[in-house]
Design a protein around this nucleic acid. Structure first.
Lengths: 195, 195, 195, 195
DNA sequence: GATGAATGAGCTTTCATTCAT
DNA sequence: AATGAATGAAAGCTCATTCAT
């Protein structure tokens, strides 16, 4: 009962896994149902359409990633150290629960038509964006990071990490992804630091 | 031969445009046929399946982007200047012919199942990757860029630019994308330069 | 017993209302349940299937209409006056409780497959048909109405009134339905009277 | 090749037959497809939805009935004779091609939700209504029929005939429907004639 | 009696692909 | 080469009905 994980969450987790692995269109509702031993019809008792389900998932994943970054933000350490921690947790997640990041890359980023209504702007990923904004603005306030448009910094951070996880998924990297933490943290810090 | 090649290219261009705008699954072969006033059946005389067509497109786009970068590589200027030129051409392309970049983001990156057979690794985007590799290695050879694993640098470059074009497409940026060229070029150079 | 009968009737009324408004197939059991704050499962404690429910309703409505006509039949007045009273009560009902007539038109008349078993012939509307038969035969006996096959007269009466209520529902009439009572009563009487 | 009967018409005829026999909802697109040896998908090449198909059919049937009445209208004979001819052709049709009348009764009259958009008022049955209007107004002009609201007369005519065909379909009549022609024509004429 | 989550068959609709012309 | 009607498998979604509680 500890792991009660409500029925909704079970569906959410299963759909997240399948969508992130095979994409939105190549995953069918029967696929999701089968993967958790539930009937097709019952999924619709919890989520009124496949699109609604996809939108709930992006919020769900954004919350989980945002929460991880929030924990880093709370720590008393330099921006340079925080960058390293965020890169580390991101790659950790890419290893342990890659579905969150892959969902972002494969489903959210690519299937605009699905998220058009209800996720305008960054509405459905705001939990995650907000934490990165906090990280960035604190770094600027402390004089550790150069003051620039937030999105210039955000794009660097997320594009870099997302792109790298994609490369990892493609199997083109020569080393384990964790061995890149040093280089990448350094690059990000060099890009953003107060020169 | 001229005829044939031009017909193929017409299909390629039309499909690229539609796939990049609406995604792979939301674009139908009849859609493509209609947009160029060709019959559905005839498209299959040039491309044996929708997937094959998608794979040809990614090579086609990669070639076009690679060619642009090659022209920058040929110029006699510093890595810092080259970075600026590449960022500029990328954002130019995002404004003028966004289909190439959007295809990459919306179709190639997201629909792995489509590209699984025949585009393993970065096979279908090698023209483009190769040029960036040349840029990077020349910069290192000249002592202008820090020597590091190529993919650390590649991920930064492409993830950053791709992510930024995505943000632009989402309409969340406060300014015109071209006004970010300075910041972004600076960030990339700071990240990669010989410290 | 009081309790039970009242619960059944509540279901009957709710289903009648919804079926008559939206049709048999466009009304779901959950719709009916929700409209009376009862659970779906409990409806099945009173009516073993949606079809059974539909059959009970047609008897129920037929009884109510029959009862109204019975009251006219009991009155001591000429056939001409009775025709007017019946037309008036029919149009009154069409205004005040249109569900009965609409159920007849939209559900009973149209969904034969539903009423096939158990409502053969006019079995389920016999209460209503019987009263019209009494009206007609008394009029003939009194020498006020021309003697003819009952169904020739019944078809006129019910087809005319039903058809007119349909026209009213379609919104094609130029005047309020009650302003047609004179004309229609006259027409019916002229058709049926002893010439 | 004489009976080329275009593909659309073949679908229309088959759907009309099945809808009129089993109702709109109890008839599936695969049923229609099977009945003419056509694939399900191809039906959608001719009619973009089941509802569109139903709307085309009501126009198609209304045209056919209207055309028959037009031929009566063209004849040089009294209103009384015309009434008899119309009743006769209606019952003929009910015997020979009952689908047109049954479609009207079972599908058009009962499934308002289907015809809501596009068949408002009597839009989709106007061919048929118009001919009856011509019949009626000519009779009035000639002094043979009493002048009254058209719909009072229309409702009588169509409600009566429709209702009677319904009774016939229910199998409650004691005689063959054609044996009722005299009585019914007389009743209608008595109702409408100049007294 | 009362609940409503769960089932799964069956619906309408779509679309990549084929093939007779 | 070119056409586009035709196919049919498969999708998303609905809903009458059941049954454990």
């Amino acid at each position: 009962m500890d792991k009660k994980s409500s029925k909704s969450e079970k569906i959410l987790d299963a759909a997240l896994l399948l969508f992130s692995k095979h994409g939105f269109y190549a995953t069918t509702i029967p696929d999701i149902a089968k993967s958790i031993g539930m009937s097709v019809g019952n999924i619709y008792n919890y989520f009124s359409s496949k699109e609604k389900l996809a939108k709930e998932i992006i919020k769900y994943s954004s919350d989980i990633l945002g929460e991880e970054i929030r924990r880093v933000n709370e720590q008393a350490c330099s921006s340079q150290e925080k960058i390293r921690k965020i890169v580390t947790l991101y790659f950790d997640m890419a290893s342990v629960k890659p579905q969150h990041i892959n969902y972002f890359l494969r489903v959210y980023l690519a299937n605009k038509e699905v998220f058009k209504d209800g996720c305008e702007g960054m509405l459905c990923v705001s939990a995650f964006v907000t934490e990165l904004m906090i990280f960035f603005e604190e770094g600027v306030a402390r004089g550790e990071l150069r003051n620039q448009d937030f999105f210039s910094a955000f794009g660097l951070f997320m594009g870099y990490l997302g792109g790298f996880v994609f490369l990892n998924g493609e199997g083109v990297l020569n080393k384990d992804i964790n061995e890149y933490i040093d280089d990448i943290s350094t690059n990000i810090f060099n890009a953003l630091k107060q020169q």
